[in-house]
Simulated assay, not measured.
Amino acid sequence: MKIKKEFFLGLMVLVIVVLLIGGIYTFRKIRIRDSLIAQIKELSPRDIPPRTIEDLREAIRLYEELIEQHVRDAAQTGVYWKLLATRLQERGLHHEALNALERAVYYIPEDAYVHYQRGISAGIVAKSSFSAAEGNADAQEYFALSEKSYLRAIELDEGYSRPRYGIGILYVFEMNKPREAIPHLLRYLEISRNDVDAMFVLARAYYMVNNYQDALDIYDRIITTSRDAAKRIEAENNRQTILDSLYG
């Protein structure tokens, strides 16, 4: 008799536990359902839960309009950050410009111009007194950000020439990577054939990798094409320096 009593007592406890679990599950389903109904109700033009297929379609349409508006707002916010960054750069405030450009990248990550501008500001910050005070590791971090930004801009728009010139300067004068600079500068000069400043950078890159003949050819090109007398004289002097080092 005692065993039967214990059995029925255990069975009762089990039933109560099962009922409690079922009740909790049902309560959660009701809460989720009510929450969904409330959200749909907010989107319903008649402020009541949609009861027909047409009502549901209308609620979906309104929701999609809200999404589209959010997308438009986000894109416009990115434009504002980009504009702010440009104004800050014009005033030489490149630390602040970098912060603005980070926000612009967040909103419009596939805008090649934003990445290019970030490459410019990061390179300038790397050479600033702030970076020098923080030590070489800090400067290298900004140079790495500059490189990453230029490369991303090129990846997004291969026909966009300015990032190629920017990374060419970065590789030649700051990161000691002249070999990596050469293809970018060559591509840039295919587009901007008469950019004498870029020719000087390319000639220097050739000189740094001991490709003296190509460096001489670039200096000859500057001498014959530039209308700037000072730049022609500079090219002639650089050309003579190479010849002197080769032939004494």
Results as ranks from 00 to 15, higher is better:
residue 190 E to V: 00
residue 146 S to E: 14
residue 62 L to S: 12
residue 171 Y to M: 01
residue 1 M to L: 10
residue 230 A to H: 10
residue 236 E to H: 04
residue 120 I to C: 02
residue 76 Q to V: 03
residue 82 K to C: 01
residue 175 M to A: 11
residue 240 Q to K: 14
residue 60 I to Q: 07
residue 163 P to L: 15
residue 134 E to L: 06
residue 229 A to C: 05
residue 118 R to P: 09
residue 36 L to D: 13
residue 112 A to F: 03
residue 185 L to E: 13
residue 106 Y to K: 05
residue 19 L to D: 04
residue 211 N to I: 13
residue 40 I to H: 05
residue 226 S to P: 10
residue 225 T to Y: 09
residue 25 Y to A: 12
residue 112 A to I: 05
residue 143 F to Y: 15
residue 134 E to N: 00
residue 57 R to C: 00
residue 194 N to E: 14
residue 215 A to K: 03
residue 179 R to Q: 14
residue 149 S to I: 07
residue 124 I to L: 08
residue 243 L to Q: 01
residue 91 R to T: 06
residue 124 I to C: 10
residue 139 A to L: 10
residue 167 I to Q: 01
residue 78 G to V: 06
residue 63 Y to H: 07
residue 52 T to H: 15
residue 228 D to V: 01
residue 73 D to V: 13
residue 170 L to R: 09
residue 76 Q to H: 04
residue 200 F to T: 11
residue 220 D to T: 06
residue 79 V to S: 05
residue 175 M to S: 09
residue 3 I to P: 05
residue 55 D to I: 00
residue 182 I to L: 03
residue 167 I to V: 15
residue 54 E to I: 11
residue 83 L to T: 10
residue 168 G to W: 05
residue 21 I to S: 09
residue 224 T to M: 12
residue 172 V to I: 06
residue 10 G to M: 01
residue 187 R to S: 14
residue 126 A to D: 09
residue 242 I to C: 07
residue 207 Y to M: 13
residue 214 D to G: 06
residue 110 E to I: 04
residue 86 T to Q: 07
residue 123 G to K: 09
residue 11 L to T: 12
residue 30 I to T: 02
residue 116 Y to C: 08
residue 197 D to S: 02
residue 90 E to D: 12
residue 215 A to S: 11
residue 164 R to V: 01
residue 241 T to Y: 10
residue 112 A to H: 02
residue 133 A to P: 04
residue 148 K to H: 12
residue 29 K to G: 02
residue 100 A to M: 03
residue 80 Y to E: 12
residue 101 L to F: 04
residue 94 H to S: 15
residue 224 T to P: 05
residue 64 E to P: 00
residue 27 F to D: 03
residue 53 I to G: 07
residue 117 Q to G: 00
residue 96 E to Q: 07
residue 191 I to Y: 14
residue 128 S to T: 05
residue 30 I to G: 00
residue 101 L to S: 02
residue 98 L to E: 15
residue 97 A to N: 02
residue 148 K to V: 05
